[in-house]
Design a protein around this nucleic acid. Structure first.
Lengths: 141, 141
DNA sequence: CCTTATACCTACAGTGACTATAGCTTACAG
DNA sequence: CTGTAAGCTATAGTCACTGTAGGTATAAGG
C-alpha cells in the first residue's frame, strides 16, 4: 500500500495535485486508512504516470479523460485515441507557428534598439505603432 | 469623448477586458458621464492599443506595466525596455524549443499508430510508458 | 508506552488574463 | 416619449494547478 507521498515522489507530482485529480474525478477515490489517509496500489501509480506523461505532452485534462476512458475499454478501435493525438499535434504546430512569428517581431524590435533615451526607443515605438507590425497580425488575428 | 464600446471596436478589445484593465490599474480610471458611463480621450485609445499590441507579442501584464511606466517617463535610458523585450524573446525561444520537442514526440506517436484495437494502440502505449519518451523528458524536466 | 518529527488531512484562497452572466440603468435616435 | 442598444456593477467561472492555515495520523526512536 502506497502513501500519497510515495505516489508524489515516484511520479514527480505534487501531493496537492494528486488530491486535485481525485477531486475532479481523474483519479479514482483512494482507499483510506482507519485514520483517513489515502492508500494506493500499483494500478493507481500507473494511472497517475499516464496522466502526468500526457500533461507533459500538452494534452488537456479533458483529452486525458477521453484517453483514459479508451485505455479502460480496450476492445474499441484505437482510431479515437489517434484522432485525439492528431488534434493535439495540430494544436502544437499552430502554437509553434504563432511563437515563431512573435520571435521574428521581437528580434526585429531588439535588433533596432540602440540604447538611446526612451523618446526614440525602438522597442516602445514598435509597441506603440501596431501598424508597423505585419507578421504578428497575420498570424494572430 | 469616446465610449467604452468605441474603444472596444477600435482596438479589438472586449468591453469587459477594458474594465478589467482599469480595475487592475493598467488603464487610468476613466472620466464618467453624469449617468456613470465611462468616457475616453484619444490618449486612452493609444494606451489601450499599446497594451493590446504588447499582449499579442506575448508580454505579461506585469511586463506591460513596466513598459508603460518607461513610456510615461521618456527621459530615461531605453536600456530597461530593451532588457524586457530581450527577456520576452528568450521566453518565446524557450517555448518554441519545448513545443518542438512535443511535436516530435506526438508525430512519432501518431505515425506508429495503425488504427488497431486499443489493446495494441501505439498512442496509448506511448502515454503509458514514459520511459520510451526521451525527447520530452530532456526538454521539460 | 511515549514522544517527536514527518507526513497527511480538509477547506479555502490565489494565480493569470481574461470571459460570462444576471439584473439593472443610461444614452440617444426616431 | 419610447424603445433599444449600450452601458453599469458585482460576482462567478475558466484552466490546471499551487499555497496556506490549522489541525490529525503514522512510524521510528528512546
Amino acid at each position: 500500500m502506497l502513501s500519497i507521498g510515495t505516489l508524489s515522489r515516484r511520479t514527480g507530482t505534487k501531493v496537492q495535485t494528486i488530491r486535485y485529480y481525485e477531486e475532479i474525478g481523474l483519479m479514482n477515490e483512494a482507499r483510506r486508512t482507519a485514520g483517513g489517509q489515502r492508500r494506493y496500489v500499483e494500478k493507481d501509480l500507473h494511472r497517475l504516470a499516464f496522466i502526468r506523461h500526457s500533461r507533459q505532452l500538452g494534452f488537456s485534462l479533458d483529452s486525458i479523460r477521453e484517453l483514459l476512458d479508451l485505455s479502460d475499454n480496450p476492445s474499441q478501435s484505437c482510431a479515437e485515441a489517434d484522432s485525439i493525438a492528431r488534434r493535439q499535434l495540430r494544436q502544437v504546430e499552430q502554437r509553434i507557428k504563432r511563437l515563431q512569428a512573435l520571435k521574428k517581431e521581437l528580434k526585429r524590435m531588439v535588433a533596432d534598439c540602440q540604447g538611446d533615451s526612451v523618446v526614440e526607443c525602438k522597442v516602445l515605438e514598435v509597441l506603440r505603432d501596431h501598424s508597423a507590425c505585419l507578421t504578428v497580425r497575420r498570424q494572430l488575428g
